[in-house]
Design a protein around this nucleic acid. Structure first.
Lengths: 201, 201
DNA sequence: GTTTATACATTCAAGAATGTATGTAAAGTA
DNA sequence: TACTTTACATACATTCTTGAATGTATAAAC
């Protein structure tokens, strides 16, 4: 066969990852075979085994790409005139990203519904570092809002952040499960708005 | 072999379901083999195939048992003096049940983390009838609370119910993922309390 | 320009896992 | 009591799936 250049090999690698995402979503991670992935990528299993040691390594390579857009785009503007609006914007941004990036959305769908968290995947059941960081930033944002007197009194920043964290987790799950223009999918932004409204003075 | 009576056969059937629950939780549904289930139940695959047509049917038989305790025990007292307290009690009850009934907890764990929602399992991704019913009862309870003037103004009963529904969904997930005496597991009741407090006048 | 490492494709061996078919002994039943 | 059905166990054939081994043509390195 025609041996590829480094650049072409990198393209092949990405094709395999993209194919894996599609196959994982259609078949579930465990039920996906490297044969199916290879076929979807237009290569043979040999190519897959060349780029990845096994399915697990391929899975984690695929997962890598899901977290990237969020760290840049889901940010809390601590200096905003209306800090709660800043939080609302950040929360909305999550779903804008999911709407925009089909690949990220598919990875989230796989992680939520197409993966059995056993053996080497078991540690991923709990909160990821990224999630904990999100919770922490959320807490800080609420603290700031509280200092600016924007919060209705009674609850601590940590309490509010945890409540929002769980709300968002639930919303992401139902948003992913719903088809487009179905209940939770189309109502996400107003649900977020209501959620924040509860916190206003 | 010694042929069993009808009653003994029913016991065998339950053993198989219990074994399936254990194996599903340890291995994931797709990775579980009927051989493992049979071994865990102390029978052969022949017995499993006698009682269930295949793994899917066994899975649904197992799942049947998860919903039962909730319909009886998670109830909203619409006539309570403090209707929000009534809602809080109902929400707490969910986690009391999960704490009490290891089998129910394990089934939830399987449904949340050990199952790939593809093919015949795909329809289960969305909200179950039970969940929709819960959301509906929750809405009704908030409406009642609103009519009694117990709610802080600004949001409709439906808005509040959806917010609570997503919160509870997120909490269940994190509660299940956490080991006992870990963050979300031990804080569940106070998280619920805070959540309800946000709604008070 | 020769050598070597790369980027795959192809082939092979071995082990699951499944569904079915068959065997069997006792429980029901007429 | 003779027959039938039940409740399994056992055996078998078939179908994936995997990992590794091997082949190979070419890009890259020297």
């Amino acid at each position: 066969m025609v041996r590829k250049t480094k650049e072409e090999a990198e393209v092949t690698r990405r094709h395999i990852i993209d194919a894996a995402r599609q196959v994982f979503r259609d078949c579930g991670v465990r039920s996906s075979t490297l044969e199916k992935v290879a076929a979807a990528a237009g290569v043979t299993r040999g190519a897959v085994y060349w780029h990845f040691r096994n399915k697990t390594e391929l899975f984690f390579a695929m997962r890598e790409e899901a977290t990237l857009p969020f760290v840049d785009r889901v940010v809390f503007d601590l200096n905003a005139a209306d800090p709660l609006a800043g939080i609302e914007v950040a929360l909305r941004e999550i779903f804008v990203i999911l709407e925009d990036h089909a690949d990220v959305r598919e990875i989230f769908e796989i992680l939520s519904f197409k993966c059995e968290y056993v053996d080497e995947f078991k540690p991923m059941m709990g909160c990821s570092d990224g999630q904990m960081e999100f919770l922490q930033k959320l807490t800080e944002a609420y603290r700031q809002a509280g200092e600016l007197g924007a919060l209705r009194p009674g609850l601590s920043a940590s309490d509010l952040a945890h409540d929002t964290f769980l709300f968002i987790g639930g919303l992401i799950k139902h948003w992913l499960a719903a088809s487009p223009n179905q209940r939770f999918r189309s109502d996400a932004l107003s649900l977020i708005h209501n959620h924040i409204m509860l916190r206003r003075i």
